[in-house]
Design a protein around this nucleic acid. Sequence first.
DNA 1: CTTCCAAATGGAAGCGCTTCCATTATACCA
DNA 2: TGGTATAATGGAAGCGCTTCCATTTGGAAG
Lengths: 356, 356
Amino acid sequence: MPVLSAGEGPLNRGQRSLIGGDQAVAVTIYDVAERAGVGIGTVSRVLNDSPQVREKTRQRVLAAIEEFNYRPSPIAQRLSLRKTLAIGVITPFFTRPSFVERLRGVEAVIAESEYDLIIYNVETVARRDICFQEVPTSHRVDGLIIISLSPGDEDVARWAEAGVPVILVDADHPLLTRVVTDDVAGGYKATRHLIELGHRKIAYISNPLDNPFGFTSSRYRYRGYRQALADFGLPFQPEYHQESDHSRAQTRAATERLLSLDDPPTAIFVASDTRAMGVLEALKARGLKVPDDVAVIGYDDIEVAEYLGLSTVHQPLYETGALGVELLLKQIDDPERSPMRVELPLELVVRQTTVG
Amino acid sequence: MPVLSAGEGPLNRGQRSLIGGDQAVAVTIYDVAERAGVGIGTVSRVLNDSPQVREKTRQRVLAAIEEFNYRPSPIAQRLSLRKTLAIGVITPFFTRPSFVERLRGVEAVIAESEYDLIIYNVETVARRDICFQEVPTSHRVDGLIIISLSPGDEDVARWAEAGVPVILVDADHPLLTRVVTDDVAGGYKATRHLIELGHRKIAYISNPLDNPFGFTSSRYRYRGYRQALADFGLPFQPEYHQESDHSRAQTRAATERLLSLDDPPTAIFVASDTRAMGVLEALKARGLKVPDDVAVIGYDDIEVAEYLGLSTVHQPLYETGALGVELLLKQIDDPERSPMRVELPLELVVRQTTVG
DNA sequence: CTTCCAAATGGAAGCGCTTCCATTATACCA
DNA sequence: TGGTATAATGGAAGCGCTTCCATTTGGAAG
């Protein structure tokens, strides 16, 4: 039974069926106002917990809301407030364990806020470029978290012009607030650990130092690795540095190359735990004992590392994501906030792949 | 330098600074229209690739868009179109490998569409109830994918009334379109595999059959397990069925219980690969050889299963997610579409934890 | 019972689009 | 050349909110 009212004004808004047959028709603030016998301003005030509504009125409005099972339209709110109430996250390979763990931190904090979380997954350089171009300027999000992808100066300038707050997690740019760890120190810790165990022939397997995505962690960890070798007076052997992509297969191949050297290493530092699995696989295939024949240390401390008994460098993945969002929310509230760099600590985790 | 125009009408819209100092101010369709010397309707037509714009006009508009670097506001479009252009996904424990893999399928298809992806992560029953209550009625999404959580009749009725299309993935309800696998058959396949290898004492470790989230897969796989035992004339031993939550620790404990029985099993079917890792861990701790002393088969075929050499039942996780979204998009286009049940096939994957 | 002030309320305007309808320009034909 | 069908265009109205400002109400004080 349609609820109609005579056209008594230039605009006849809010006059619609409440029982729309199959067609669900949204109840609006006008319906509620009419039902409660108040103006739409008052309904809006009730919705927004404004103190300046008399308790009696408030109850009437709440009753009408309840009766109609009214829910305000977030879209209309957003248009009116000129906020999208959404936060975007641009992350590469969002299904890989380390990124998932960062996302978990991001999600946890956003879930507690009034914002929605929109994920932009990046698996190709082209898609990264599109995301960098489009997402910040498309009025889709009030703020942006970017994980492990470092923007260029032009990107940052464009985003500043668009007025979109951007926080980097595990990436760097001097003009943006960022949550990072010290990858050089991480590489150093891992390498020093192996040296202190008596190893002298230590290999390093990582991403290509120059890679199309511009991931920097492998390069910085490489620096730490070199530094540790130097500090302890060990020579650097170029053939001890092997590159592989993320895949186990390629990492196996890289490990094979190391093992086939005339003077193979006795320890391998791998720039991620997932890759370390490829190393362990290769060693097993060759019948080599870990850590007796070859010691292995990974990086990240993803969940499976504990299961595998993998020594590694613990990164606060969850925390970086969570902190990134917290900083973003502050920045949204106060856009004038000057950029800061937050560094979270790393921790060496010693397990059975280095210490029998 | 502010671009101003005298108030020459009742509404003076779109008159704003284009260079807002620090304050980025959005360019609107009015600015573009004025610049191109056309009406807003024409700009809108150009934006929406309407054929009824003269090529010459079109070029002028495109030039103005380019000059101002104009991007239409999705929020305003959504309000006007009365579509949110967003799809929600309600998933429990979105960081666990099997859910991540489903999400990957979901994301891949949504990324190709015009929709945004909003993730609602559920880690508690309370949060599930809130999501079931609020998300579909809150005008936030045009459609909803629900993973592994089965709604009740009241839920479904409420959603129907709200007019929100809902697709289930790995969950069931007769009134909703759903993408499922045959968990009974999966349990049967796994158990039969063990039987055919000669095992007669076969245990089953799963979620509690009755669990607060209402996950049903463990129960159905249990049925398959029982059925296989029966078909091959093997007795069912109640103590061979152990329950654990998702954690490795609890699964280790469940395994310990099995191993401590007077007549311990020689094979264990575990209802997920992640749990299977707990089983392997427990066996290793006891110094038992796999598969010689105890054979193990998991479920899901997550990425790490291959690495571990874990026999398992392969579920098309990615495909269920992708297909779910495809069906949802169709349903959004045609809300009258009658609900259907799509069943994807399972596949036994034999690796080293069952066949040495 | 007035008077006056603060509190409460109503609702127009505006957020930035799409779309419909009325109007204008163009093209075609006789 | 004029007339007419058709294509192109302009812009008001409307999407459902928030907020500001003007107006009304309630109640305390006299």
